[in-house]
Design a protein around this nucleic acid. Structure first.
Length: 582
RNA sequence: GCUCUUGUAGUUCAAUGGAUAGAACUGCGGACUUCUAAGCCGUUAAUGUUGGUUCGAUUCCAACCGAGAGCACCA
């Protein structure tokens, strides 16, 4: 079905045509048809008259009146109740019984029938899964679900750095740990992973300490050399003892990640590892260095580099002086692996925006090497999670762990429920889903391309415009629906209150909002809308009785059920679960 | 230094080339014999500065001031 806004737009364009507006002028005209912010002014509006008054050489108010008259004749009366000129705007009111489309899928031309790969989260084994990963996961999940909503076939990828210097630092840092390697059944996965995170922080600390003596000092050189040897060992698997610890640590980390994905509600189709993409990427780089292509060059210390300056980019190292491929070469291998595995039409990679410049370089190089793949890659970057002014860094240990945050939120949510008549199991599951909703929603309700300042205390609050607020509305509706079971419907035809009418009219907007969210890859539109809808429901709920004297007002119940369906669907698109009770 | 991003109530975030710049938190004040008070109702409060483009700029452009990120062998 055509979007209502598109329908109006097309009719406006035909108005231009019958008025013999030249094609040249038509090009210049950019009017909008959008939802009215203020619902009292109608369901939709257009600024057509303001934009076109010059072309018509008429006062915009006159244009608005003329347009309104034309639209009045053209538009379907079963959809539009009223079309009204108000100053220079034209407002549209939909008929009361204009039904919400039951099938909520939206077929967007940029998505329908396309195969789209989404890569997101990308945590590194043996390093902490911190709130930055939580952010990337939340955004990636929402964006990929928006892709599905738009009619795309979607696969989800996670890329994990199981080789590289960060791991060398962890493995090297082990020697300074005071507690032994936690190789025991009695130690939880969480604590094992924590141990590895501490080794990483300690390794970095020792490295920084050595650096304080100067980069030319013997001590620093020794440390660097040890880390480089470790890096080499991990890369070529030449040391049995290292292999043993490494394999075990990697396994623990991956297990821990799976636990988290389960809680967060993400299911990846494929996992990629740097240990696999590294040799592949290196081969491609070496082969090209030896060919005539001139993409790569030898830099200082025989490192293999790409001279980005020729293209307005940075110069980056692809294979370092020791012959180990860096992140950049691995990206090449990854791109090829992904495409060989599944011939996508588009590959979306979600990362923090600190990687923007590197992605420009790697995309350029991949496009030069493999144009059929590089041209399909799109980098979607999100802002950084900031801790009230401070940058988070896993190197220094200045981080908030993802699982710890979820646990703290769960405890806060549990506290609110402790006196409810629920089983222990129910309370646990509900507090988990509410906690995740709280975290995810606080990320998704805002423009993710900008930085998010994270205040733990405030985030733990479950009040106000939050995920739990929306879940709560769903719970209330479920509770009402349950109460109406077995009751008779009332014969009294109730007049629809203002709140009921507004709620009903807000329901329709969902479809329009989804379209906009798809168009701009912007989950926050859906998040903001759900708050609006839940808030209107709560106002309605406070002033209207659905059950009166043991009789059910059918029309109001119907409104509740429809609201619940939209809220549930919207939360699902954002990757947030609904709960039965809370 | 160069490049990019960014600046909206006390705080955290919305929105828009045009109709009265919206919420939430905080503060203050209410309602409830009633379907879950994680709720409802009321109230105070904001577009960094200076210019430019425009009929109209908080939005686009420029400069300045402030914040963040990136800039060769980490990812």
């Amino acid at each position: 079905m055509l979007q209502i806004a598109e329908l109006i737009k097309n009719t406006c364009i035909s108005f231009l045509k019958i008025n013999n507006i030249s094609d040249e002028d038509m090009e210049k005209i950019k009017f909008v048809v959008d939802i009215n912010k203020d619902i009292d002014r109608g369901d939709l509006y257009t600024n057509f008259a303001l934009v076109t008054s010059k072309v018509f050489n008429q006062n915009p108010i006159i244009v608005a009146i003329n347009l309104t008259e034309y639209l009045h004749q053209q538009l379907d009366k079963t959809i539009f109740k009223k079309v009204e000129a108000a100053d220079a705007y034209v407002n549209f009111y939909l008929t009361d019984d204009f039904k919400v489309d039951k099938n909520k899928n939206i077929y967007h031309k940029d998505f329908t029938g396309k195969k789209i790969a989404y890569e997101y989260t990308d945590p590194n084994p043996m390093k902490e899964f911190h709130i930055g990963h939580l952010m990337a996961n939340t955004i990636g999940e929402a964006v990929s679900r928006i892709g599905e909503l738009a009619g795309a076939e979607v696969k989800r990828y996670s890329y994990q750095g199981d080789t590289g210097r960060h791991l060398a630092v962890t493995m090297w840092g082990l020697r300074f740990m005071e507690t032994p390697w936690p190789d025991s059944e009695t130690i939880s996965i969480t604590d094992k992973v924590k141990f590895l995170g501490q080794a990483y922080v300690l390794g970095n600390k020792k490295l920084a300490e050595a650096k304080e003596n100067g980069e030319e000092s013997e001590e620093y050189k020794k440390v660097i050399s040890e880390i480089e040897i470790m890096n080499q060992k991990i890369y070529d698997r030449s040391d049995e003892e290292v292999n043993l610890l490494y394999d075990q640590g990697r396994e623990w980390s991956l297990q821990k990640f799976e636990e988290l994905y389960e809680i967060l509600g993400t299911k990846f189709d494929y996992y990629f590892f740097e240990s696999i993409t590294a040799p592949l990427g290196k081969d491609i780089v070496i082969n090209n260095l030896n060919s005539e292509s001139n993409i790569f060059a030898k830099g200082e210390n025989d490192a293999i580099i790409f001279k980005g300056e020729d293209y307005g980019l940075h110069t980056r190292v692809f294979v370092n002086a020791k012959g180990i491929p860096t992140y950049e070469a691995k990206e090449i291998g990854l791109a090829k692996m992904k495409y060989d595995l599944w011939n996508f039409d588009e590959s979306i990679i979600v990362t923090a925006n600190e990687q923007n410049d590197i992605f420009k370089v790697t995309k350029k190089v991949i496009t030069m090497l493999m144009p059929e793949i590089g041209s399909l890659m799109e980098h979607v970057s999100h802002g950084m999670m900031k801790l009230v002014g401070e940058k988070m860094s896993s190197r220094t240990g200045k981080i908030i762990a993802g699982d710890e945050l979820v646990e703290d939120m769960m405890a806060a949510s549990y506290e609110k429920m402790k006196d409810r008549d629920l089983t222990e199991d129910e309370k646990k599951n509900i507090s988990r889903d509410v906690a995740v909703a709280g975290i995810k929603f606080s990320i998704l309700k805002q423009n993710f391309r900008k930085d998010i300042v994270f205040d733990k205390e405030k985030s733990l609050s479950l009040e106000g415009d939050s995920g739990p607020y929306i879940q709560y509305a769903v719970v209330r509706i479920n509770s009402i629906v349950k109460k109406t079971e077995g009751l008779e419907f009332s014969n009294v035809k109730k007049e629809m209150s203002n709140e009921a009418q507004n709620l009903n009219r807000t329901l329709w907007r969902y479809n329009h909002i989804c379209y906009k969210a798809i168009d701009e890859m912007a989950p926050q539109y859906i998040a903001q809308y759900l708050i609006d809808l839940a808030s209107r429901f709560n106002s309605f709920y406070n002033k209207n009785k659905i059950i009166e004297d043991d009789k059910v007002h059918g029309e109001l119940l119907d409104l509740c059920v429809k609201t619940r369906d939209v809220l549930t669907h919207g939360l699902m698109v954002l990757g947030i679960r609904v709960v039965e009770k809370m």
